[in-house]
Design a protein around this nucleic acid. Structure first.
Lengths: 339, 339
DNA sequence: GTGGTCAGTGGGAGCGTTCCCACAGGCCAA
DNA sequence: TTGGCCTGTGGGAACGCTCCCACTGACCAC
């Protein structure tokens, strides 16, 4: 190990700069009412001493921690395995870092969820909370807000909960995909929808139905199959769709993984993509570029979502009273060889 | 929002319990020299007031933060997409939570890596560092230790760096897999190895070669192909191996994703698994259970690895002088239908 | 009795900030 | 000249905790 570094304090900085503690503090916090001369002297002293404010002392005095919690409930822990959420975390990390905030990761165990939650509420070790949630019925946001901590929910949030949130515009994305299929001349457009109890599930279906209606096409129950966002479920859903008659000439899958499963089923069945049937996914996950054929899909930007979540939370922390509208991030279509 | 909660202080707890601040503090920190009577009174007061120590004040006084950083370098950010690392993070989160430590996530940008690093060293906002690293040449551990902060590296660490680490016993796992193939009567056992510049790559190859030697079988260069741990690379490597003659009767893949690719290539080529050729993977990733046929593979426990990393770091924090041996976690074979 | 030890206790000091108040000095209008 | 204001400044106080020292009163051995 190394010699313990004697961290300089504000007092030493002030002394070296030949000013008072107050003035030095004002410089550091960028407040007005400091002469140019004093400011320069303090800045020089800071640089020379390598001074960095002691966070604990600051937190003690200001009652703020400059830390933000990212809460991932146990049931959502698999998010780490999903590239989409990995991207969100990356965006969050970058944005918080740029804002000088620490990211405290909280993996809440279901069993001790209440306890864990109360802990960081009571200890007030964070100034705000970011929540990654998949489920409609999650009561967490409300509970956190009850304690006076700002919360922003990201990804697949339930708009019904009155909470600040950022989400991909699933409806618009699905419309984009279906409009593309319609525009390519397809008329019997099937869908492999996600679970209706997830926002991503039902709102993508909603967009699908809306696009069909807008094109004057009927929404045919025979062309709707459901999956659970897993590859295997996409495979079996596609098999089921192939048995319907007349067979669909296109299929919109609510995510890329199910689309990959569908491609597999089509391949097994000897159906040509995109000649016999066009396939479109949603998410633009890494897998989309490496399927056979490469998948046309709706692109969403997880990093942007993470950044937006942070921006919204910082705004909420700065001004808790003004209500903020939920933010829907636009999507765009990436056309590859499957359509 | 809600009425701002007036957090009780230690003073109020002491007053209510009818003792001095010192006694109350002793009770809270579990120190001896407190009468049973006083202890009970303080504990009752704590419960009644819902007192929780102020972390900032404690940190200011003790110079410790009770927080641990998990550093993920940008080049490793994709770890989030990997189930294995997701599991590690889960294990780390659980173990730190149980130890009453906060997990501060640091996604170090390559561009500002030095700055970010120095930041949390200087600010000493954490008491220790956990590092998830894939690359052999990473200088981070040394740099962090230079500043007197304990570090534990997890996953694919380079044993050559003199740093505390926890890793899966890749050599032993690979031996297990190959011994299983040998035991099933296979003689021309190929391997799809990972990149030699990753520990997981070369040490699994090492185990493969060692097991062959131990069985008196030659290590035939014609039976060795390389991939990059991605599915596509496994597919093309398998195709290459099929062209060698005589064809292998078994193949050990350095991870499950490449094994999945290999299965795909075999399926395309009309080769029966396991009748014509046996396939074994490494990792026991979720995908292993859903391939066709389900994959025999070497199981490793990422959660355990995360927990071990935390245990080692806590030990290092408690006693920085005693050197700790690197910890190799055992693996076990999971036999499914592909062998 | 006296002196020592020792469990148990109370409270001062100080960790490094920020906030705020007091105040110096310059300037302008009366 | 006097009063008022306004910019810039210094330093006391406090945030809530832990550490440590001083102290009390039992208890024991002499």
């Amino acid at each position: 190990m190394i010699a313990p570094q004697p961290r300089p304090t504000l007092n030493e900085v002030a002394a070296r700069a030949g000013v008072g503690r107050g003035t030095a503090s004002r410089v550091i916090n960028g407040q007005a009412k400091v002469s140019e001369q004093a400011r320069e002297a303090v800045e020089r002293a800071i640089a020379e001493l390598g001074y960095v404010p002691n966070r604990a002392a600051r937190a003690l005095k200001t009652q703020r921690t400059d830390a933000v919690a990212l809460v991932i409930a146990e049931s959502e822990e698999r998010v780490f395995g999903e590239p989409f959420f990995a991207g969100i975390v990356r965006g969050i990390g970058a944005a918080l870092g740029a804002a000088g905030r620490q990211l405290v990761l909280l993996l809440a165990q279901a069993s001790e969820r209440r306890g864990t939650l109360d802990e960081f509420l009571t200890r007030q070790h964070v100034d705000g909370v970011l929540l990654l949630s998949l489920h409609d019925d999650d009561q967490l946001p409300g509970r956190i807000r009850e304690h006076g901590l700002p919360v922003v929910v990201g990804g697949r949030a339930n708009p019904a909960l009155e909470t600040d949130f950022v989400d991909v515009d699933n409806v618009q994305g699905a419309r984009l995909a279906v409009e593309h299929l319609v525009g390519s001349g397809h008329r019997r457009i099937a869908t492999i929808a996600g679970p209706p109890d997830m926002v991503a599930g039902h709102s993508r279906y909603e967009g699908y139905a809306a696009a069909l209606e807008a094109a004057g096409l009927p929404v045919d129950e025979a062309l709707v199959a459901h999956g659970d966002f897993g590859q295997a479920s996409g495979e079996s859903a596609m098999r089921a769709l192939l048995e319907r008659s007349p067979a669909p000439d296109a299929v919109f899958c609510a995510n890329d993984l199910m689309a990959a499963g569908a491609l597999r089923a089509l391949n097994d069945a000897g159906v040509q993509v995109p000649e016999d049937i066009a396939v479109v996914g949603f998410e633009d996950a890494p897998i989309a570029a490496s399927t056979h054929p490469p998948l046309t899909t709706v692109h969403q930007s997880p990093e942007e979502m993470g950044r937006e979540m942070v921006a919204m939370l910082l705004a909420a922390m700065a001004d808790p009273t003004t209500p903020r509208p939920g933010r829907m991030l636009p999507t765009r279509l990436v056309v590859r060889a499957s359509s």
